[in-house]
């Protein structure tokens, strides 16, 4: 098991002072190499769940177990290390650093992990090639199309060979052609490298391609069987 959420609850304080409960007594296990899709309406808490699984947010109740360890006992630098070495993130808004070119954006997590610059850049080039944007390596994000930016973000998510890739509506801003291309790459590359994927999406066609699919509704997850 890569990561497990056990009976987690999450709420936010609203402007009115009352608490909005987003997740309640929710559990999910993410096995290595499996692709899990989370579907649900907008605002239902898909992103919140992904943030919690990505150790970007904390829970009010329940536990998150990563590598057999409860993450609530970990400090900021330990959590950052896990995010760097074991997780890869892809978001709807590509979140590339505008001051770095595509190659530097992809190499950044490897550099943070302590890899030498030549090694990190060589690995980044391989991945840019694998996602089909090798010739755009020297371009800055504002010179890349949405589809290209998202493929660069995918390459960046994969550079440290993470155990888990978290993708939050990764195709939300793409046209159908680029959407298919990105999902093919995401599923193909993560399966090739044996990585687990948790993917939040509105798109049922994409969800059906996952190994397991859940519907997030009224604060709970329900497994979709067909």
């Amino acid at each position: 098991m890569v990561i497990s959420a056990i009976n987690i609850g999450k709420s936010y304080l609203e402007g009115t002072g009352s608490r909005l409960i987003v997740l309640e007594d929710l559990s999910i296990d993410v096995e290595g190499g499996k692709v899990i899709a989370i579907t649900g309406e907008s605002g239902v808490g898909k992103s919140t769940l992904l943030h919690i699984l990505g150790l970007l947010d904390t829970v009010d109740s329940g536990r998150i177990i990563f590598n057999g360890e409860d993450v609530s006992s970990l400090n900021d630098s330990q959590l950052s290390r896990i995010r760097n070495s074991d997780f890869g993130f892809i978001f709807q808004f590509h979140y590339l650093l505008p001051e770095f070119d595509a190659l530097e954006n992809v190499a950044l997590p490897a550099l943070l992990a302590g890899m030498s610059r030549p090694e990190a850049e060589s690995r980044a080039k391989e991945l840019l090639s694998a996602v089909g944007v090798a010739e755009r390596a020297g371009h800055f994000p504002n010179a890349l199309s949405g589809g290209e930016q998202q493929r660069v973000a995918l390459a960046r998510a994969l550079i440290n060979n993470p155990r888990l890739v978290l993708a939050d509506e990764p195709t939300g801003n793409l046209d159908p052609k680029n959407e298919d291309k990105l999902i093919d790459l995401l599923f193909g590359l993560t399966r090739e490298f044996g990585m687990a994927v948790v993917l939040a999406t509105h798109n049922m066609a994409i969800a059906r391609r996952a190994d397991q699919s859940y519907l997030l509704r009224e604060k709970h997850l329900e497994e979709v069987i067909c």
Partner: peptide, 8 residues
């Protein structure tokens, strides 16, 4: 982004 890619 820096935090997403694992910067403390």
């Amino acid at each position: 982004v820096m935090q997403l890619v694992g910067a403390s």
